[in-house]
């Protein structure tokens, strides 16, 4: 993994976390909006087989995400991620090196 990939993945992970957090925050409205968009997508791409497959997967993904949010699993995932981020970004107190007696 080169540095650029690393930066890209970090940015992507941040974006996903923010997206999920926003999704939880505005769940009701987002749920309705997602439903509408998905319905439209399904209607629009029903004729094209490949697009129908893709849209089907996208719909499935959103529905699963919705289920996860409802079951509270995403909340615990976000809590775990924020604990890890805090641990990794807060420098610990510097320890004293225990030396050995040379006598």
């Amino acid at each position: 993994m080169d540095e650029l990939t690393y930066i890209f993945i970090s940015a992507l992970a941040n974006a996903v976390c923010m997206g999920v957090a926003l999704y939880i925050g505005f769940r009701k409205g987002v749920e309705r909006a997602v439903d509408l968009v998905l319905d439209r997508l399904q209607q629009r791409y029903m004729e094209n087989e490949k697009m129908r497959e893709f849209t089907g997967s996208a719909v499935e993904l959103f529905r699963n995400l919705n289920e996860l949010v409802r079951s509270g699993e995403v909340k615990s995932l976000i809590a775990d991620v924020s604990v890890l981020v805090r641990q990794l970004s807060t420098p610990p107190r510097k320890r004293t090196v225990k030396t050995m007696s040379s006598e």
Partner: peptide
Amino acid sequence: EDVVCNVD
């Protein structure tokens, strides 16, 4: 830290 801070 557990290793480097403990010369023994």
